Deep mutational scan, measured.
Amino acid sequence: MDETGKELVLALYDYQEKSPREVTMKKGDILTLLNSTNKDWWKVEVKITVNGKTYERQGFVPAAYVKKL
């Protein structure tokens, strides 16, 4: 869990989004888990830094590609 009590997951593999509802992740990324009720796709939040500014983006990743921490 992070400092706000949200559950975290670890990306076990790289994943490139294939639709606007998904998010890209790299092996080793730590993501915030938002919803894991679907056994195949989990909703996560990723933080992306571009030119020194951090953005948060929500989307789905394959559940088999992440592990709860």
Rank of each mutant, 00 (worst) to 15 (best):
residue 1 M to W: 14
residue 1 M to K: 13
residue 1 M to I: 13
residue 1 M to C: 13
residue 2 D to G: 15
residue 2 D to K: 04
residue 2 D to M: 11
residue 2 D to C: 11
residue 2 D to S: 13
residue 3 E to M: 11
residue 3 E to K: 06
residue 4 T to Q: 13
residue 4 T to A: 11
residue 4 T to P: 10
residue 4 T to V: 14
residue 5 G to A: 11
residue 5 G to V: 12
residue 6 K to D: 08
residue 6 K to A: 12
residue 6 K to E: 09
residue 6 K to N: 09
residue 8 L to G: 03
residue 8 L to M: 14
residue 8 L to I: 08
residue 8 L to K: 14
residue 8 L to A: 06
residue 9 V to I: 07
residue 9 V to S: 02
residue 9 V to D: 00
residue 9 V to K: 01
residue 10 L to H: 04
residue 10 L to P: 00
residue 10 L to S: 05
residue 10 L to E: 12
residue 10 L to I: 13
residue 11 A to D: 00
residue 11 A to H: 01
residue 11 A to F: 01
residue 11 A to K: 01
residue 11 A to E: 00
residue 11 A to R: 01
residue 11 A to S: 06
residue 11 A to L: 02
residue 12 L to A: 03
residue 12 L to R: 04
residue 12 L to K: 04
residue 12 L to M: 09
residue 13 Y to K: 13
residue 13 Y to Q: 10
residue 13 Y to W: 12
residue 13 Y to D: 08
residue 13 Y to A: 09
residue 13 Y to T: 09
residue 13 Y to L: 09
residue 13 Y to V: 11
residue 14 D to G: 06
residue 14 D to H: 05
residue 14 D to K: 03
residue 14 D to R: 02
residue 14 D to T: 05
residue 15 Y to T: 01
residue 15 Y to P: 01
residue 15 Y to V: 01
residue 15 Y to C: 02
residue 16 Q to A: 13
residue 16 Q to Y: 14
residue 16 Q to N: 11
residue 16 Q to R: 13
residue 16 Q to P: 05
residue 16 Q to T: 15
residue 16 Q to M: 13
residue 16 Q to H: 11
residue 16 Q to W: 12
residue 17 E to N: 06
residue 18 K to V: 08
residue 18 K to F: 04
residue 18 K to S: 12
residue 18 K to T: 14
residue 18 K to Y: 04
residue 19 S to V: 04
residue 19 S to E: 07
residue 19 S to P: 04
residue 19 S to D: 12
residue 19 S to H: 14
residue 19 S to N: 11
residue 19 S to F: 07
residue 19 S to Y: 05
residue 20 P to M: 10
residue 20 P to N: 09
residue 20 P to E: 09
residue 20 P to H: 11
residue 20 P to F: 07
residue 20 P to K: 11
residue 21 R to I: 13
residue 21 R to V: 09
residue 21 R to N: 15
residue 21 R to A: 14
residue 21 R to E: 14
residue 22 E to M: 04
residue 22 E to L: 04
residue 22 E to Y: 04
residue 22 E to S: 05
residue 22 E to T: 06
residue 22 E to R: 04
residue 22 E to F: 05
residue 22 E to W: 02
residue 22 E to P: 05
residue 23 V to G: 02
residue 23 V to L: 11
residue 23 V to N: 02
residue 23 V to A: 05
residue 24 T to K: 03
residue 24 T to C: 05
residue 24 T to Y: 03
residue 24 T to E: 03
residue 24 T to R: 05
residue 24 T to F: 03
residue 24 T to N: 06
residue 24 T to H: 04
residue 25 M to V: 11
residue 25 M to F: 09
residue 25 M to Q: 01
residue 25 M to C: 05
residue 26 K to G: 04
residue 26 K to C: 09
residue 26 K to M: 10
residue 26 K to E: 07
residue 26 K to Q: 08
residue 27 K to A: 13
residue 27 K to R: 11
residue 27 K to Q: 10
residue 27 K to D: 02
residue 27 K to C: 06
residue 28 G to A: 02
residue 28 G to D: 05
residue 28 G to K: 02
residue 29 D to S: 07
residue 29 D to W: 07
residue 29 D to K: 03
residue 30 I to M: 06
residue 30 I to Q: 05
residue 30 I to Y: 06
residue 30 I to E: 03
residue 31 L to M: 11
residue 31 L to R: 00
residue 31 L to I: 08
residue 32 T to M: 10
residue 32 T to L: 13
residue 32 T to C: 08
residue 32 T to K: 13
residue 33 L to I: 04
residue 33 L to R: 00
residue 33 L to E: 00
residue 33 L to A: 02
residue 33 L to V: 06
residue 34 L to E: 02
residue 34 L to F: 03
residue 34 L to P: 00
residue 34 L to H: 05
residue 35 N to C: 09
residue 35 N to F: 05
residue 36 S to H: 09
residue 36 S to C: 09
residue 37 T to L: 11
residue 37 T to S: 14
residue 37 T to A: 10
residue 37 T to V: 10
residue 37 T to C: 11
residue 38 N to D: 15
residue 38 N to W: 06
residue 39 K to Q: 11
residue 39 K to S: 13
residue 39 K to G: 10
residue 39 K to R: 13
residue 39 K to Y: 10
residue 40 D to V: 12
residue 40 D to S: 11
residue 40 D to C: 10
residue 40 D to G: 08
residue 40 D to Y: 09
residue 41 W to C: 05
residue 41 W to S: 02
residue 41 W to L: 03
residue 41 W to T: 02
residue 41 W to P: 00
residue 42 W to D: 00
residue 42 W to Y: 07
residue 42 W to C: 04
residue 42 W to R: 01
residue 43 K to S: 07
residue 43 K to Q: 11
residue 43 K to M: 15
residue 43 K to V: 15
residue 43 K to D: 03
residue 43 K to G: 05
residue 43 K to W: 11
residue 44 V to T: 01
residue 44 V to F: 00
residue 44 V to S: 00
residue 44 V to P: 00
residue 44 V to Y: 00
residue 44 V to K: 00
residue 44 V to N: 00
residue 45 E to D: 04
residue 45 E to C: 09
residue 45 E to W: 06
residue 45 E to T: 07
residue 46 V to N: 07
residue 46 V to D: 03
residue 46 V to Q: 14
residue 47 K to D: 08
residue 47 K to Y: 09
residue 47 K to V: 14
residue 47 K to C: 09
residue 48 I to M: 09
residue 48 I to A: 08
residue 49 T to W: 11
residue 49 T to P: 06
residue 49 T to G: 06
residue 49 T to E: 12
residue 49 T to F: 12
residue 49 T to S: 10
residue 49 T to Y: 13
residue 49 T to N: 11
residue 49 T to R: 12
residue 50 V to G: 06
residue 51 N to W: 06
residue 51 N to A: 13
residue 51 N to G: 13
residue 51 N to K: 07
residue 51 N to L: 08
residue 51 N to S: 15
residue 52 G to T: 05
residue 52 G to A: 06
residue 52 G to D: 10
residue 52 G to S: 06
residue 52 G to R: 04
residue 53 K to I: 15
residue 53 K to M: 13
residue 53 K to T: 15
residue 53 K to C: 10
residue 53 K to H: 14
residue 54 T to V: 14
residue 54 T to C: 10
residue 54 T to F: 10
residue 55 Y to V: 14
residue 55 Y to E: 14
residue 55 Y to D: 07
residue 55 Y to R: 06
residue 55 Y to A: 07
residue 55 Y to G: 07
residue 56 E to G: 12
residue 56 E to W: 14
residue 56 E to N: 14
residue 56 E to Y: 15
residue 57 R to E: 05
residue 57 R to F: 04
residue 57 R to K: 13
residue 57 R to A: 07
residue 57 R to V: 07
residue 57 R to M: 05
residue 58 Q to Y: 08
residue 58 Q to S: 15
residue 58 Q to H: 09
residue 58 Q to D: 07
residue 58 Q to W: 07
residue 58 Q to R: 12
residue 59 G to F: 04
residue 59 G to Y: 02
residue 59 G to R: 01
residue 59 G to C: 02
residue 60 F to H: 05
residue 60 F to N: 04
residue 60 F to Y: 15
residue 60 F to L: 14
residue 60 F to D: 04
residue 60 F to T: 03
residue 60 F to E: 04
residue 61 V to R: 00
residue 61 V to T: 01
residue 61 V to Y: 00
residue 61 V to F: 00
residue 62 P to T: 01
residue 62 P to A: 02
residue 62 P to C: 02
residue 62 P to H: 02
residue 62 P to Q: 02
residue 62 P to R: 03
residue 62 P to F: 02
residue 63 A to D: 01
residue 63 A to E: 03
residue 63 A to K: 05
residue 63 A to T: 05
residue 64 A to K: 14
residue 64 A to P: 08
residue 64 A to T: 12
residue 64 A to H: 11
residue 64 A to I: 13
residue 64 A to Y: 08
residue 65 Y to T: 07
residue 65 Y to F: 12
residue 65 Y to H: 06
residue 65 Y to G: 06
residue 66 V to E: 00
residue 66 V to P: 00
residue 66 V to K: 00
residue 66 V to Q: 00
residue 66 V to D: 00
residue 66 V to A: 03
residue 67 K to A: 10
residue 67 K to L: 14
residue 67 K to V: 15
residue 67 K to H: 09
residue 67 K to P: 01
residue 67 K to T: 12
residue 67 K to E: 12
residue 68 K to F: 08
residue 68 K to E: 06
residue 68 K to Q: 10
residue 68 K to T: 07
residue 68 K to D: 04
residue 68 K to Y: 08
residue 69 L to R: 03
residue 69 L to P: 04
residue 69 L to Q: 06
residue 69 L to S: 03
